[in-house]
Design a protein around this nucleic acid. Structure first.
Lengths: 227, 227
DNA sequence: GTCGATCTTATCGTATACGATCTAGTCCAT
DNA sequence: ATGGACTAGATCGTATACGATAAGATCGAC
């Protein structure tokens, strides 16, 4: 992040990795919006590399679900509709719930303090209306807990879900007024469950409901707006 | 499977796909056991293709977790220890549980009949001691249900889990005597839950316990055998 | 004027080639 | 004999080149 490898002296980053990060970044920040055609030769020229590493990067993004690929035709940024958003949220609810429950026993009192600090900062964001930072802090909050997740596969699924959300954030995400405040309250309740050593299943379902609640809020909000 | 594309006229299968299937097959049937070094040029010669599609296949397998890859060093079949097995089973319990609950409302009475037929065949396998076929039928049983899963992401995770298990089947899986019979009984109970339109969460937890039970049985079994 | 066949072009899929990097073995100095 | 530097071989990473495929344009027939 600090020193973006100037031109052709990547200290420890292969060209295919550079291509991967390059494309991924552009997809996430919206430069390449859903449906955008990724032409290998074109991207290769921009990056001043050959098509081979670019192709590898694109296939990798395909494996991650960020782009779709058709043989002899090409790749394009994955189309993400409401249905996709729903599936992703449902899956996230599932894996985040489990990840929270599995992590709970390993959350220290220091972690709890840090989590509460973050949650407080989120309240500040509400007052100053900084939705972007709010979302960031939300991830940090959960990261403090998940950091202890003993099952790396489940943790990986959580990160995949987050990536996917980042992908379609700009197109689908909309800030639902009441939900943000509800969210920070649920955070505090989650922390209390963890602190009190509640049953794993209780924690799991609470964390699951936390995610599901965001989904429901969004759906209701859209429905009320006649969409 | 039926017609292994003779030489250079793959009707509708790219060379990288052929390489992918070739390697995957060998990993699953144990020809390439964990730790086996996958040398691109070597495999390329065997398949009479260049290294480029082979490399693509290997990277794809890496993304799936079947092989590990180190830059400028090479790839090898992923090492899978008991811990890995545990993680996979825990994750599978999670996603299979949800997949079952989500699919339940769409399971028809015809599906129920088919599932019960398969379950009966599994009992036969027990009597004739055919553990391999038993495992196959077990997958079919769950497939009948999951076929209706409305969330493709979760279904995909189930399949990934199955793939992963197939990967380490030979090295870690051992047939636990009493568990198989227990398993078919749990199948029947699952079907009854689905049939009676039980609450989604009940179905989810039952399906989850079904998978967890296999894991516990295996762990206890190993513990009792002093390992 | 519309439909279908041919041709053109853009893009992908793969082969080959070569430079870069790692690993291991050898040799020399201590 | 042991440790470190050097050399050689193997393997990977990427560039370039060319054949293969598919989408679109052009032209002719009805």
């Amino acid at each position: 992040m600090a020193s973006d490898a100037r031109d052709d002296a990547p200290v420890t980053l292969s060209k295919s990795e550079r291509a991967y990060l390059f494309i991924k970044e552009r997809i996430e920040n919206g430069s390449y919006s859903p449906g955008f055609r990724l032409v290998l030769g074109q991207i290769a020229k921009q990056l001043e590399v050959s098509v081979v590493p670019v192709r590898e990067a694109v296939r990798r993004l395909e494996a991650e679900g960020a782009v779709t690929f058709e043989r002899n035709v090409g790749a394009q940024v994955a189309m993400v509709d409401e249905r996709e958003y729903f599936y992703t949220m449902e899956t996230l609810a599932l894996v985040e719930g489990k990840a929270t429950a599995l992590s709970a026993p390993f959350v220290s009192s220091l972690d709890l303090i840090e989590a509460r600090d973050i949650n407080a900062a989120m309240v500040d964001c509400l007052h100053h209306f900084e939705p972007h930072r709010f979302t960031e802090l939300n991830l940090e909050f959960h990261a403090v807990i998940f950091e202890h997740c003993p099952n790396p596969h489940i943790l990986d699924l959580v990160h995949r879900g987050w990536n996917r959300l980042a992908l379609l954030r700009d197109s689908t995400f909309s800030f639902v007024p009441g939900r943000a405040r509800e969210s920070v309250e649920e955070h505090e309740r989650l922390l209390q469950l963890i602190e009190s050593g509640a049953a794993p299943l209780d924690i799991e379902l609470a964390a699951r409901a936390h995610r599901t609640g965001t989904l429901d809020a969004l759906l209701n909000h859209q429905a009320n707006q006649g969409r």
